[in-house]
Amino acid sequence: MSRRGLSAFAGRVSFKAAQCQEWKKPLVLVNKCISPLKEDEVRVQTKACGLHYATYLATRGEYQVKRDPPFVPGSEFSGDILEVGREVSGLSVGDVVAGLAKTDALQEILTLPSSMLEIGSLIKISSSPIDDENYSKLASLVVNYGTAWMGWTRKGLIKEGDTVLVTGASGGVGLAAVELASKIFKCKVIGMCREEKSEQVRNFGADHIIDYRSESIRQEIKSIAPSGVDIVFDVVGGDGAIDLVKSLAFEGRFITIGYTAGIPKIPANILLLKSATVSGLWAGTATTPPGVFKETANIITNLFLDGKINPLVQEAIPLERVNDGFEKMGAREVTGKLVIRM
């Protein structure tokens, strides 16, 4: 019925998973049974699972799409193919893969439908093993860089020479947006972050840094871009977003992606006076037009494999210490990405 591979899981009937049993409480490690594989499924030995802010919010019952406990959080993963259903083509036992599961990525084994290959949420990386560091980086690609790529290209209509501003520039999505804007699109980049995190943001390509705690943000932006900013890539939200809209150039674009500081109320008259646009982006497989997610995932993966982008993994944390990662996210102590290693 399937093609199996030899691994550390050979002969085992269960695996560990980090389960949210109650909102706002620490995750609990539980044992889950390995179910029979269907003919159109693949089994993945998870090597790394990337944490992002939406995952943190989901465990607190604060994300836009709520899941009632108990559930296993996490979506972004990398790993090795353990088993392949007999109707599956394009994948073999031992292949290295990465992707974006709908749920349940914080566990040692994932059982996935092969249809994920068609929409681009499961990507073959290699037919031979890779080093541990690259498993961690692969689990940091799809959400961060995919979101940034779609934001810049589909919503921001970015072009070479634009002046762009990225909020939350030291976070996973923010750093990805900075790196793509600077290295791939050749733009002038303003990064907003805490001063103590500015060196890393500059290393990823920011030309200027503004501390978001500054009381003169508009004046600082004006000194850098007298005619205004062409695109704002906002992953923070909050009341500060209004000043950023006011700092747009004529026909500027404001991309709203996240709300760690709250949901802003942007006055429509400012948009009129600047002929500006505000666009939202939810870059998931269920919300992205057919073909777009796969195209984006392939572009981002190839940029990584070609050495043109390099995700920053702040720390790879063992599954047994998964709650340490969530605590760091809640305390805003993350630069780049945290991953959980299995």
Rank of each mutant, 00 (worst) to 15 (best):
I257C: 01
V93K: 08
K16Y: 08
L29W: 05
T260R: 00
S126G: 07
S128R: 12
G307D: 12
I184K: 12
V236P: 00
R218Q: 14
L91Q: 07
V72K: 05
F254C: 02
T287Y: 06
V313H: 11
A48M: 10
G74F: 05
I34K: 04
A169C: 05
D132L: 13
G79A: 10
S121T: 15
A58S: 15
R341A: 14
T59R: 01
F15I: 06
N298V: 11
A241G: 07
N323V: 12
L248W: 03
S247M: 02
H208A: 11
Y135F: 15
G284P: 01
S279I: 00
A54H: 03
S14Y: 09
F71W: 05
Q219Y: 07
L312D: 02
V88M: 11
T147A: 06
V189A: 10
F77T: 04
F204Q: 10
A297M: 05
R60S: 10
P318K: 13
G171T: 04
G307C: 13
P113T: 08
I221H: 08
N310Q: 10
A48Q: 08
P290T: 08
A17F: 08
S275D: 12
L106H: 11
I300Q: 03
P26I: 04
T277R: 12
V30D: 06
I221E: 05
I158D: 04
V292G: 01
I242Q: 00
A206C: 13
A58G: 05
S214P: 13
A105Q: 02
L122W: 06
D68I: 14
T256W: 00
R332N: 15
E199T: 15
Y56R: 00
I255M: 10
R154Q: 11
P264D: 03
G228Q: 10
G74S: 07
M150Q: 14
I34F: 06
I242E: 00
L122E: 02
A206W: 03
